[in-house]
Computed example of a mutant assay.
Amino acid sequence: MPRIRPVSDLRNNFAEISKIVHKSKELVFLTKNGYGDMVVMSIEQYENIQQNQEVFMKLKESEHEANNSNERYTHSEVFSNLRMQIRNRPTNK
């Protein structure tokens, strides 16, 4: 169930809202004059959303490329190529 609070609670009950977004990992929706105005979330939750969006975009890109190409690789070819790239990457020493 979404947590909906008036925007004034951000000022008056900041510690409580912070506790909600960090401990329960829930979003808090803030309203102004009865209408949705903002969403408050923890940085961890925001980073998770960003990471999921990045993965989704890369999957969409891969799907698009697969639909426009007949080139396919086996599991062995993919992991062999990745191992080679890891071995050949420059080290920062």
Rank of each mutant, 00 (worst) to 15 (best):
N52Q: 15
I20A: 00
N68W: 03
N33R: 11
K93R: 14
R83C: 03
D37T: 03
L82W: 06
R11Q: 13
G34L: 10
V21A: 03
Q85S: 11
E26Q: 13
R72E: 12
K93V: 15
H75P: 01
D37Q: 10
T31F: 03
V40P: 00
S76I: 08
E54Q: 09
G34F: 06
N70Y: 08
Q53F: 04
N67S: 11
R83V: 07
F56L: 14
K25G: 09
S76G: 07
I20C: 03
T31Y: 04
V40E: 00
V28G: 01
N33H: 06
E77L: 11
S24W: 01
S42E: 12
N52C: 08
E44T: 14
K23G: 02
Q45I: 04
K58F: 10
I86S: 00
E77V: 10
Y46W: 10
G36N: 11
F79Q: 05
P90G: 04
N68F: 03
M57A: 09
V28F: 00
E71A: 04
T91F: 10
P2V: 05
L27T: 13
R3L: 08
N92A: 12
R72G: 11
K58V: 06
V78F: 08
H22N: 13
E71K: 10
E63H: 10
L30R: 00
Q51A: 13
I20L: 02
I17K: 00
E71L: 09
K25L: 13
L27H: 12
R89K: 15
I17Q: 01
E47W: 02
Y46S: 09
K58E: 14
P90T: 07
L10Y: 13
Y73H: 09
E65R: 13
L82A: 07
R87M: 14
N12A: 15
L27F: 12
S76N: 09
S76T: 08
K60H: 05
N70K: 09
D9R: 01
E44N: 10
I43F: 06
P6H: 07
S8C: 02
M38W: 07
E47L: 10
N70T: 13
E47G: 02
T91K: 15
L30I: 01
A66Y: 06
N67K: 08
I20G: 02
Q51C: 04
K19F: 05
Q51R: 12
F79H: 08
Q51M: 11
N68R: 10
E71G: 04
I49L: 08
F56V: 07
E71D: 08
V28P: 03
K19Y: 06
N13K: 01
M84H: 01
H75D: 12
P6C: 03
M84Y: 02
K93I: 11
L27V: 09
M41W: 03
I43W: 04
H22T: 05
P6V: 00
V55C: 02
N67M: 07
T31C: 09
Y73M: 14
H22R: 09
E71F: 12
N88Q: 03
Q50R: 14
Y73G: 00
N13Q: 06
K32S: 14
